[in-house]
Amino acid sequence: MRRRTALLLSLLPVLLPGQASAQATSPLSRFGGPAIRLVVPFAPGGGADTAAHILAPSLAAALGRPVLVENRPGGRGIPGADLVARANPDGQTLGLTNTAPLGMAPLLEALPYDPDRDFTHVALIAETPSVLLVPADSRFQTFDLYLRAARSWARGLTYGSPATGSLQHLQGEMLAKAAGARLTHVAYRGTGPALLDLLNGQVDSMMAPLASAIGAVTSGRARALAVSGPAAEPSLPGVPAFAALGFPQLTATAWMGLSGPRGLPPTLVERLNGEVNRIIALPEVAAQLRAAGLTPPDRPLDAAAYRQLVADFATTWRPVVAASGMSAK
């Protein structure tokens, strides 16, 4: 009996080759440790950080591993993105990156990474438009009043943005040029400090990512004059899109998604992409994202489609950035 049992056990790899192979190549087996680092290259409280904390619990449950959000702020997201690019491609370090380090930065300066070659782009999580803000008690209660002042006042108006070289900086410069307005850019190190100065009256206005500013608007501390999405934003009733106001060239949204270092195994990429798409389609998760000013995609994108979205941003916006004369300095 013992000899028969031993013989059967010795034949298992032969009798069940498909099962043995499936276990050896299971996406979960690719993870190199008990916890997965989800690097957010920005400070806590912004749109990317919010999306990471919404995604992490469900992703951890799906993968059977803790997912720990790790903020690595500074340098417009470039150092944090570089950390992800240099990580081992074992699935233990992933990044929730966005337009800033992967879309705008490559158009403005030399980087320690290539946004296409040095990453494995896994899944789109959400997009968020920019919003033109003024303090709630500002004399500019409408976009028309704001634009009249920016055109007629000798000093013009000031507008803050999260950083020099950000998408919001570019949109402000585009608005000034298209409208023939005097808008002076004031750069900050992040949305938080810029928003604080706006609310304290240190700048006249601000171009901000909606996901980072929606709290100030819904609480009544700031007023939204226009939004850069293709249409009016459901979370901002009554606020027109720039396109509807005659400035369609400002239409753009910042995207954010899950990426890893170059060389992530295809089986792992497929598993992660499927889980992210499943999670963000859950009604409760989609509601959380929308409440935070983040819009999940209306249809699931595979990893190849998300990689193309990242590449298309550079193709679309490179000539616009060049024409604006904007730099990261």
Rank of each mutant, 00 (worst) to 15 (best):
Met1Gln: 15
Arg3Asp: 15
Ser10His: 03
Leu11His: 06
Val14Arg: 03
Leu15Lys: 00
Pro17Arg: 09
Ser29Asp: 10
Gly33Leu: 01
Ala35Asn: 13
Leu38Trp: 13
Pro41Gly: 05
Phe42Ala: 06
Pro44Trp: 01
Ala51Leu: 00
Ala51Val: 01
Ala52Asn: 08
His53Ala: 02
Leu55Trp: 03
Pro66Leu: 09
Leu68Gln: 02
Val69Lys: 00
Val69Met: 00
Glu70Asp: 14
Pro73Leu: 02
Pro73Gln: 03
Ala81Asp: 10
Val84Gln: 05
Arg86Lys: 14
Gly91Tyr: 05
Thr93Val: 15
Gly95Arg: 10
Asn98Pro: 00
Ala100Gln: 15
Leu102Tyr: 10
Leu107Asp: 13
Leu111Ser: 13
Pro115Thr: 07
Arg117Phe: 07
Val122Arg: 06
Leu124His: 15
Ile125Glu: 08
Pro129Thr: 05
Pro129Arg: 04
Thr142Lys: 00
Ala149Phe: 03
Ser152Met: 14
Trp153Tyr: 14
Gly156Thr: 02
Gly156Pro: 01
Gln171Leu: 14
Gly172Val: 09
Lys177Gln: 15
Arg182Glu: 03
Val186Lys: 13
Arg189Ile: 06
Gly192Val: 02
Ala194Pro: 00
Leu199Gln: 13
Val203Ala: 08
Met206Val: 10
Pro209Glu: 08
Ser212Asp: 15
Ser212Trp: 12
Ser212Gly: 13
Ala213Asn: 11
Ala213Cys: 13
Val217Leu: 01
Arg221Gln: 12
Arg223Trp: 08
Val227Arg: 00
Pro230Tyr: 00
Ala231Ser: 13
Ala232Trp: 01
Glu233Pro: 04
Ser235Gln: 15
Pro237Asp: 06
Gly238Tyr: 06
Ala244Phe: 00
Met256Trp: 02
Ser259His: 01
Pro265Tyr: 02
Pro265Asp: 11
Pro266Tyr: 08
Leu268Gln: 12
Val269His: 13
Val276Leu: 12
Val276Asp: 11
Ala281Asn: 05
Val285Gln: 12
Gln288Leu: 09
Ala303Asp: 10
Ala304Trp: 05
Ala305Gln: 09
Tyr306Pro: 04
Tyr306Ala: 06
Gln308Phe: 05
Ala311Asp: 13
Phe313Ala: 07
Phe313His: 09
Val321Thr: 05
Ala322Trp: 11
Ala328Val: 14
Ala328Arg: 13
Ala328Thr: 12
